[in-house]
């Protein structure tokens, strides 16, 4: 009598075991991701200053204040400039390098790691390297002067209007090789028979790539776009290391804005509302993409 009961218990345990093992991860995700998101959303409707305070309900006042702040407007303009240039340039460079590398290049094995290694570095390291290389006093401008090009000027990193573009340069340097790898994988996945057939039909190289290869790379374009836009909106480390948001606040971004309002200016409510805007922007890009991915896989 005892044995079947025990066996029964064992099979039932086996049935439950997967769920029991998965449960902690799921619970942690619910609490630390979704619970925390809710916490921050609620906080953005309160008048919290230095510490979270849930009794001082202010409605939408933080959002109104957020969008009236000049620094937030600067941050929005900067993220628009940065994200669009970063995504477009990385995609173009990545695609070009991938297509070129796919032409039976000698030394591809040596070139690929050179293109890719910046991805292994921290944005703080990247920022440090470019910060001093672009510094007019000791970096590129000085080098050109030393080499005899006395009139050469490159002071973007010190300029209110141009500093944002130095962040684009450093960020493109860091990730374009990775985008190249994504496109290269896509190119290597294309069936050669299709290309040969098109060539027999008399298509030129240009037509071949424009009409056949690039349309076939659609999934790689989509992945690149999603990854790059997500990196762009989150960009915090690179800005801190390269310009620290300056000169003045010329290179402020939503991520640096959130940090400074929450932790140094003691306007936690406003900081929380800026984080909510960031989340909503990323969600607008990621949710449809993830939804489509998951649906397909089913």
């Amino acid at each position: 009598m005892a044995e079947p009961a025990q066996a029964d218990f064992r099979t039932r345990l086996q049935d439950w075991l997967p769920k029991i093992v998965l449960a902690p991860s799921f619970a942690v995700t619910l609490l630390f991701v979704y619970g925390f998101i809710l916490f921050t959303i609620v906080l953005s409707f309160t008048g919290s200053k230095m510490l979270p305070k849930f009794d001082a309900w202010v409605g939408l006042a933080n959002y109104q204040r957020l969008f009236s702040l000049p620094e937030w407007k600067i941050a929005l303009v900067n993220i628009a400039i940065f994200a669009s240039l970063y995504i477009v340039i990385c995609t173009l460079i990545g695609l070009m390098l991938a297509i070129f590398l796919d032409q039976k290049i000698r030394g591809e094995g040596a070139l690929r790691p050179i293109y890719l290694y910046p991805m292994a570095l921290s944005f703080i390291v990247t920022g440090t390297a470019w910060k001093w290389f672009l510094d007019p006093g000791i970096g590129l401008q000085n080098v050109m002067h030393q080499w005899g090009w006395e009139s050469f000027q490159f002071t973007w990193i010190k300029s209110n209007t141009m500093a944002i573009y130095t962040i684009v340069i450093a960020a493109v340097w860091q990730t374009s090789g990775f985008v190249m790898a994504m496109f290269l994988a896509g190119l290597r996945g294309i069936d050669n028979e299709i290309l040969k057939a098109a060539q027999i039909d008399g298509a030129s190289n240009w037509q071949l790539y424009r009409r056949i290869v690039i349309p076939l790379l659609r999934p790689a374009f989509l992945s690149a776009f999603v990854i790059l836009s997500h990196l762009a909106i989150k960009s915090y480390d690179l800005v801190i290391a390269l310009t620290n948001g300056g000169p003045g606040r010329a290179t402020a971004m939503p991520a640096t804005f959130m940090y400074s309002y929450t932790f140094t200016r003691n306007e936690m409510g406003v900081g929380a509302s800026s984080a909510v805007i960031m989340l909503m922007t990323i969600a607008a890009i990621m949710v449809p993409y993830l939804y489509a991915e998951l649906k397909e896989k089913k």
Partner: peptide, 25 residues
């Protein structure tokens, strides 16, 4: 799939959204 979807989305959140409660916890 829902469980996985919820975990997957958590990879892509801007971490600014969890900084304040995380400091608290």
């Amino acid at each position: 799939t829902w469980v996985f979807g919820l975990m997957l989305f958590s990879c892509f959140i801007p971490f600014q959204i969890v900084l304040i409660p995380m400091a608290r916890v």
